[in-house]
Amino acid sequence: MGSADAVPGISGGTVALIAGIYGRLIEAITAITPSRSFDLCKAVLPIGSGSSRHHAKLILREFDAMFVATLLTGIATAVVIVGRVVEYAAARVPVLLFGLFFGLIAASAVILWRELTIDTTGQWLVAIVGFSLAFVLSGSVQLLEEGGLVVVFVAGAIAVSAMILPGISGSLLLIILGQYIPMYDSLNSFLDGIGGVVTGGAFETVIAPGREVFTFLVGGLVGLFTVARLIRGLLKRNREATLAFLVVLVFGALRAPIAELSGTEGVDWTLVTIGEFGVLAFIGTVLVLVLDWYAIDIDFGSL
């Protein structure tokens, strides 16, 4: 799931469906509520008469804590590893990197559209709004990158929410919001800073990137318990219109890799650049289509 969500295209939710853990994941997320989390804190902390080891065990079992902890550890490990690869590629071969992303997004858009049915005028209007929103935001990459911690918080809330939606990649939404490369830069700088502090380096190197990583994680937690529940509520209330909005976001996001690349220093759109971009886009498209052919079965009916 971590590897899938670390690159735009296939979502972590899709991988959860393939692995057969999607239902268990949703049950665990639904069980973890603010009130039950507060009950857990009271049961664990040796304050007053509310502490109870037995009660804490019951709540942790209700949260499916071992499953969630193991899953989060695997996701975090994959995100860190992929982050190093992305940082290297963005600095040295940005044309190839964003060409690959374009292909991954394009193929995902085709696969999702194939599973979608739009029958009414209202659904088409919602789809047009979704496409327009993604297209406009995708062309404002440089502006969004300068949005500060507010944009980072919103990006965390939205991207983490996408983890539980098959077909919608969290990294894709980060690209739309102009936070994909900046957040990986912050994460890698934060980890490097921690390594430096352990070996006697200055603590100041951790503060700036750590602030952004912390803000993103807080946004992710808030999104997991608010945005994710809102989306699931909308799916229950008007499933077709909500799916139409989410799916066309992917089509609108096709502008993002091109806009990101156009703003990269030292990159000019020449015949060679277009050729390299096109080849990697083709490879990305084939990769997703092959996975779709052999493994991926996006079941919107399970949402």
Rank of each mutant, 00 (worst) to 15 (best):
P182Q: 00
G201W: 00
G23E: 15
G223A: 04
L137V: 10
A43F: 10
M66A: 15
A295C: 13
A134S: 07
G278F: 10
Y88T: 09
I10P: 00
W124L: 09
S11M: 02
F245H: 07
E27F: 07
V227L: 05
R229K: 10
I175F: 04
M163K: 08
A107H: 06
L174D: 00
A107D: 02
G252W: 05
Q179Y: 05
F277P: 01
R36M: 08
S132P: 09
E240R: 11
A208H: 14
V68D: 07
T121R: 12
R84M: 08
W269L: 06
A90G: 04
P34L: 09
E276Y: 15
A162F: 01
L230D: 13
R255I: 06
Q142G: 15
P182F: 00
E204Y: 15
Q123Y: 08
F98L: 08
G284D: 09
T242N: 10
D268Q: 11
F300Y: 15
W113Q: 15
V198Y: 10
A106E: 03
R237E: 10
A162C: 13
Y180M: 04
I75H: 01
A109P: 00
T285C: 15
A69I: 14
F225E: 10
G12Q: 05
F282K: 05
F277R: 02
A159C: 13
I18C: 13
L174T: 02
K42R: 14
G20V: 06
A106D: 06
A106Q: 03
T273H: 00
V15E: 01
F63E: 00
L133E: 04
E115Q: 15
T14L: 05
L174E: 02
T120P: 07
R24C: 11
I18N: 15
G219I: 00
L249H: 05
F190Y: 05
V85Y: 13
L116D: 07
T226G: 09
V286Y: 02
L97E: 13
S186N: 12
I194C: 13
A89T: 10
I81V: 10
L254V: 04
T121L: 14
S302L: 11
F38N: 12
S108Y: 03
V44Y: 02
R255K: 14
F98P: 04
T273G: 00
W124S: 08
Y294Q: 12
D299W: 07
A157C: 11
V290G: 06
W293D: 13
S262I: 13
A244W: 05
A19P: 02
I231D: 01
V272F: 13
V267Y: 05
F153D: 08
A91D: 15
A28S: 07
A28L: 03
V197E: 00
L137T: 07
E87M: 11
V82K: 12
E27R: 12
R229W: 06
I81S: 01
I283V: 15
I81Y: 01
A295M: 07
N188W: 13
R229Y: 09
F190A: 09
V85H: 11
A159V: 03
S3R: 10
L71A: 05
R36G: 10
I298P: 03
